[in-house]
Computed example of a mutant assay.
Amino acid sequence: MSKRVMLVDGMALLFRAFYATAVSNYYMINSKGVPTNAVYGMVKHLFSAVREYEPTHVVACWDMGSKTFRNDMLESYKANRSAPPEEMVPQFDLAKEVMEALHIPNVGLAGYEADDCIGTLSHHYREEAEVLILTGDQDMLQLLEPNVSVVLLKKGYGNYAEYTEERLKEEKGITPKQLIDLKAFMGDSSDNYAGVKGIGEKTALKLLHQYGTIEGILENISALTKAQRSKIETDLDMLHLSRDLAAIRCNVEIDFPLEEALLQVDEEKMAWKFNELEFKNWRKNLI
């Protein structure tokens, strides 16, 4: 049987599950006073995707604290994000405990984001396995390459948008690497960096279709409109910084052997953990 590894963006699944129920103040607080709504939903997302895509191997990747090397590049990186809701906080560790109970390895590296771990592992694994990246984050589309696909979570459970290099080219007319340059122009309000003020997706795409890269655009800057030229020249330093911030690193110091990620759920251990957390109707609703 050929190998298919699913790299799970743990934070993306956890936050999506939390906010899906938190809007109605449904936190699933157990008898110990611990909320479990995010973990329950994360597991539901995970098992839905495992049923759909039948991976042979699964790895969960996580952020390891709020400060990363990107904060050294830009102090205000992600500084506009509020602290997670108090009902969310105890569920970070619980989520990793549940992954362990499912024999799914947790991978993270201090100073880097989960994205960088996913990028690095996808790069490592693509030679020996088909790689699927399960996330809700469109930034991951820059990781598309031969043998690497991105599965974006859509609303509800079991709904996905599956991306390959070819689909991205059909939709946007650009390559995965050009997505980094696109984001460099547009900036990212959720990550709190500006890009080039006044140049949005439409203009940035047009320029990238015409000139290929930021370097190609700068080499032909005299051919741009006066307004475009002025905006780029004014924010040139931020353009380069934004590209560096947007680029997912695929060479971080992690080397996790694929064979250690073989998906082998221990039903006894899983049942013990789910019952400890007081998940209701988990046999019917989760697996």
Rank of each mutant, 00 (worst) to 15 (best):
P35I: 01
Q210S: 11
Q91D: 00
M6V: 13
H240D: 13
Y27R: 06
A184E: 14
V50R: 05
E219C: 02
N275L: 06
K67P: 02
E54W: 02
V43H: 15
L239T: 08
E100R: 10
T120W: 01
Q210C: 04
V196H: 06
N159H: 14
H240V: 04
N106S: 13
D116C: 02
T164M: 08
L102R: 07
T225H: 04
I221L: 15
V23Y: 11
V5D: 07
V50M: 10
D72P: 01
N275S: 12
Q138I: 05
N251K: 01
E259W: 08
S149D: 13
S66G: 12
P85T: 04
S230H: 09
A38D: 00
A247N: 05
E201H: 12
N37R: 00
L168F: 10
L224C: 08
G10Q: 00
L218D: 09
Q138N: 10
A194L: 13
V98I: 12
N37Y: 00
M238T: 11
N30V: 00
W62N: 03
T68M: 05
V50S: 02
D266G: 09
D191W: 06
F279E: 01
G156P: 06
E166D: 14
A22T: 01
A79W: 07
D116E: 03
N80A: 03
E259A: 09
I104V: 12
N220P: 10
M11T: 14
V59S: 10
E162T: 14
E87V: 02
K154D: 02
E54A: 11
A101V: 12
V151K: 02
T175V: 02
E128Y: 05
E253T: 00
N71L: 05
G158V: 06
L14M: 08
V150D: 11
P85Q: 07
E113Q: 12
A261T: 02
L132E: 14
P85E: 04
L46N: 05
L286W: 14
F47L: 13
E276M: 03
A20R: 09
A49D: 10
M99R: 12
R51Y: 07
E201P: 08
M64A: 15
E267R: 04
V98K: 00
K67M: 08
M73Q: 15
F69G: 02
A223P: 09
L109S: 15
E100N: 15
R51A: 13
R70H: 04
A110W: 03
Y27P: 04
L102N: 07
A184D: 08
D235H: 14
E253P: 02
M11E: 12
F185W: 15
N147E: 10
A22C: 05
L144S: 06
L286K: 14
L241R: 13
Y27K: 06
I174R: 00
I287R: 12
E54V: 03
A129R: 04
A60M: 11
P35M: 00
A223S: 15
A271Y: 08
L168M: 09
A261E: 04
N285D: 13
V98L: 11
